[in-house]
Simulated assay, not measured.
Amino acid sequence: MSHQTLDLNLTQTYGPTLTLKELCKLMKISRSVYYSSINSKSPTYKEDFPLPLAGFRKNLFMTKQIENYLDKLSYIKSI
């Protein structure tokens, strides 16, 4: 299966996706901050932080899930 076919299948199944690099750039965080945010033993653990899709060789995130998380954060900050 070609890379383009795989990307098309992912988009059809999950909608647009982001790589970890794109996620970090969008959220303006480093990779280490990301890994700390999803590590339950870390003091900066965020229980509701979006996790990557399972079963892929690289970390892929559903764009809509990330947008919803960022909207939630901006709402909380505005209160």
Rank of each mutant, 00 (worst) to 15 (best):
Y34T: 02
D71Q: 15
E47S: 11
T63I: 01
I79M: 10
F56S: 07
K58N: 10
L23F: 09
Y34G: 02
S42T: 06
I29P: 01
D48I: 10
P16A: 04
Q4L: 11
D48L: 11
M27G: 03
L51Y: 09
G15T: 13
K21W: 00
G55S: 03
T44M: 10
E47T: 13
K41E: 13
A54Y: 03
D7W: 07
E47H: 07
P16M: 03
I66N: 02
S40V: 10
D71W: 11
L53I: 15
R57F: 00
I38A: 03
T5W: 00
D7A: 06
Y14T: 08
S2R: 06
L73C: 15
L23K: 01
S78F: 03
S36P: 01
Y69M: 05
E67K: 15
T17A: 00
G55F: 07
Y14R: 02
F61A: 01
I29A: 04
S37Q: 04
S30K: 09
S32V: 09
S36A: 15
I38E: 02
F61T: 00
K28E: 10
C24S: 03
M62Q: 15
L51M: 13
E22V: 03
L53A: 05
K64N: 12
K21F: 03
L8I: 14
D48C: 05
M1K: 04
L70H: 02
T17E: 00
L60D: 01
S2C: 10
F56N: 10
E47N: 11
L20D: 03
M62I: 15
I38D: 02
V33S: 13
S32R: 08
E67I: 15
L26S: 08
